[in-house]
């Protein structure tokens, strides 16, 4: 087991290294070069030359890369062009917002997706199944940001059930300890603040959850249908096990293996979807930072965010692989 974990960890290192080379190349090929990109439109030639020297752009390319790598490893991504603050601090402030939103979306997607997919497979070809399958197809075809607007328009602007944007009402005096607003409210005993933050999470959480939900339903359904036809399920049936036992222990448990991999892959969708959802709901998380960064051509910020996203994605999939090996011993052998 330990050998598997170590091997899998070592495999992630070259991926991240090559990624850093690509990111370095990306930064070098930005319009006007990194110095212009970092200083923005108002850069004077003198300032550019100065920054080029500071960044070591007059040195050989491999030295430049090593410097870049050192800066990345020490978390020095420079200052944001928009706010002037260090990019790392900005990201630290926005991080909890995105994680909170993503976790809620993932809970919705997994909590609804696995039961729905299972039921669709169990009642294959019936009404519930057909509706579910069509629903998943439509779910994937809807652009996330349009769904966000639609939810906002119907449930916030027209019906007024939910707040249209933001993470918490401005008039609530909430203490923020961790930056996760729901958690903060619960920790400090400010239940009204926690509730308010939760209500704010509903619409963006739903918008963000749609695509992962559709994917999880489809994979669960397909995987259950696969497992049902396996020999061991027939054996279990033949020896007269209770249907409930077969469903729980033989079918569902084995069917969930591919689903767990899919959930890992969904983090990528969540990160990307967060960019669009946060823009719609004015969320103030990493996605908002990215959207604003694109608008204002804030390259130091974009660079840090892209590397962070890739890092999170690689790490999450690493964790999924490891948990997979724990659930299914067959994986460890390969």
């Amino acid at each position: 087991m330990l050998r598997f974990v170590v091997r899998r960890l070592l495999q992630a290192v070259p991926t991240l290294l090559v990624l850093s080379i690509l990111l370095f190349a990306w930064l070098r090929s930005l319009p006007g070069g990194p110095a212009t990109a970092m200083l923005g439109d108002k850069a004077t030639p003198a300032k550019i030359a100065q920054l080029n020297q500071v960044l070591g752009l007059d040195q050989p390319i491999y030295l430049q890369y090593l410097r870049f790598l050192r800066r990345v490893l020490t978390g020095d991504f420079g200052n944001s062009l928009v706010s002037g603050d260090p990019v790392v601090e900005e990201i630290g402030r926005a991080f909890p917002a995105t994680i909170e939103l993503s976790v809620v979306a993932l809970i919705i997607a997994v909590g609804l997706g696995i039961p729905l997919g299972y039921l669709a497979a169990r009642y294959r070809g019936r009404m519930l199944d057909n509706v579910t399958v069509v629903g998943t197809l439509v779910g994937v075809a809807v652009p996330v940001f349009f769904l966000g607007y639609l939810l906002k328009y119907v449930f916030a602007n027209t019906l007024g059930w939910f707040p249209p944007s933001g993470r918490q009402a401005v008039d609530i005096d909430a203490t923020h300890v961790t930056g996760f607003f729901v958690l903060d409210g619960m920790m400090t005993g400010e239940w009204d603040a926690a509730w308010d933050a939760l209500v704010h999470l509903v619409l963006p959480g739903l918008a963000l959850a749609t695509i992962p939900l559709a994917v999880i339903v489809r994979i669960t359904r397909a995987s259950v249908l696969d497992v049902v036809n396996e020999d061991y399920v027939r054996t279990a049936n033949a020896k007269g096990l209770a249907p409930g036992t077969i469903r729980g222990r033989h079918v569902l448990r084995n069917a969930l293996l591919p689903v767990s991999t899919t959930i890992g892959l969904q983090t990528g969708l969540l990160l990307a979807g967060a960019v669009l959802t946060e823009k719609v709901f004015n969320w103030g998380g990493l996605g908002s930072l990215l959207a604003e960064g694109i608008d204002r051509k804030d390259y130091p910020r974009l660079q840090a965010l892209i590397l962070l996203a890739a890092f999170v994605y690689v790490v999450v999939n690493l964790l999924v692989d490891i948990s997979y090996a724990i659930i299914d011993p067959r994986v460890r052998v390969r």
Partner: peptide, 21 residues
């Protein structure tokens, strides 16, 4: 390995970084 690396960046973010160039 190259495709692995391309797949390691969430797709929309990859598109964003290319478009930003």
């Amino acid at each position: 390995r190259l495709t692995d690396i391309m797949l390691s960046v969430p797709s929309l973010l990859l598109a964003i970084s290319i478009a930003a160039l």
